[in-house]
Design a protein around this nucleic acid. Structure first.
Lengths: 220, 220
DNA sequence: CTTTGTGAAATCCTTCACAGCG
DNA sequence: CGCTGTGAAGGATTTCACAAAG
């Protein structure tokens, strides 16, 4: 029985899914933990432990059936149900996200785009018109959205989130460079390009600085 | 002495920096670990442990000096040096990133935009023209870029990365939904909206499903 | 003979709790 | 008296290594 899957495992399931879908497209029908590990960039033992967590059993001496695993992981992640999603903040990033076809393709239904700038309201992106944030609350309720993508400036993000949570949103993808306060029953994931670059900056200098020369390592 | 800062700590330093810069803008000159923790969404003990790692000392009974900490963290992350960066793949996302002013503002100098589609080559974004990927290698070398943002389709990403690594790039921000194979001395961070949404999907259903009712929790 | 599933060991990270300094 | 810095305890996660299954 699958009881409470560890966070680290949940975070890796989408990676496996990516690798598995790719394998499936290449007509690969069976895959070993080692092969899946290589494709996902993790250790083989972890793959096995993760998959055993969700009760999906492989065949010893053979490996896992690709199609079966895809179904199993999709089920666990809840990707079978369709999800309604709104995007708040249609700046550079929000616009790119609104045009991103990956949402629809994976069962996430974009049902609303919101901004408060007059020059954006009414413009069309994909097959949706940008609406004023004033109507956010009613729209989310009416259209049954439970997931929200927040791509507003940092100052407005917390206000927006408070409103979203009040009308029933329980999952938030936060692109605003600020920490969001939410009740326990709301899941938040943060995506921040600046943060990522700063982390990279650390490791870049770590690998680059030992030595005065800045030459390219012409390794094998 | 600062010897090998833990990965988890490095990943949090940018969060602290965000919170500290905000405090600084609000004319707050001193901050306690508890206050910084609240603003960053982490535990106070962790803040203290993290900061002690990098040798920055606070004052007992008082807290940390905001300006001093900003300098210290910036130094550790290597944000003082200017970094040259290229963006490869000017689709929806690449375009948004090219227009993103946060790079320049934080000392990351965008010195090249590359794509292989004829209708994109030559178009201007910000103050740069999109160049063909053919010239990627020479351009990266000539302009001394050590960081690359990869926003190409998944199929092309590994090829591009191999070329980037060959000409001296040591840090890669990967927006392509695929695992990248790189030598040890190259740092990679992956940003994937689909992955994040799938993780959210798991927790959303976890919080939402226990019970047939789908009512809004009208909390305090 | 290959590959899974999994206890046990090892490592990493977080939290607790408090001594000690300002 | 408030708040930092940090040992020690507690969890979580990863890795090892191997028995058991096909």
């Amino acid at each position: 029985m699958s009881r409470s899957i560890p966070e680290a495992t949940v975070a890796r399931l989408p990676l496996y899914l990516q690798a598995l879908v790719e394998s499936s497209e290449n007509a690969v029908h069976t895959i070993s933990s080692t092969a899946l590990a290589d494709k996902s960039g993790v250790n083989a033992a972890i793959v096995r432990k993760d998959l055993s967590q969700l009760g999906a059993f492989g065949t010893r001496g053979v490996g896992y059936r690709v199609g079966e695993l895809i179904d199993e992981i999709s089920e666990v992640l809840g990707l079978n149900r369709d999800r309604a999603l709104v995007i708040v903040g249609i700046g550079n990033l929000g616009r790119a996200l609104a045009n991103y076809d990956g949402f629809q393709r994976r069962g996430f239904d974009v049902v609303g785009l919101f901004d408060d700038a007059d020059d954006k309201i009414g413009t069309t992106l994909g097959d949706l018109q940008v609406e004023p944030v004033d109507v956010l609350d009613e729209a989310v309720t009416a259209r049954g959205a439970t997931i929200a993508v927040v791509a507003t400036p940092a100052q407005h993000a917390q206000d927006i989130v408070d409103r979203l949570v009040a009308v029933g949103v329980t999952a938030i993808l936060n692109f605003a460079p600020t920490h969001l306060e939410t009740p326990e029953h709301v899941a938040v994931r943060k995506v921040d390009v600046s943060t990522e670059l700063q982390i990279l900056s650390f490791y870049e200098q770590l690998y680059a600085t030992p030595g005065p020369e800045r030459q390219v390592a012409t390794g094998p």
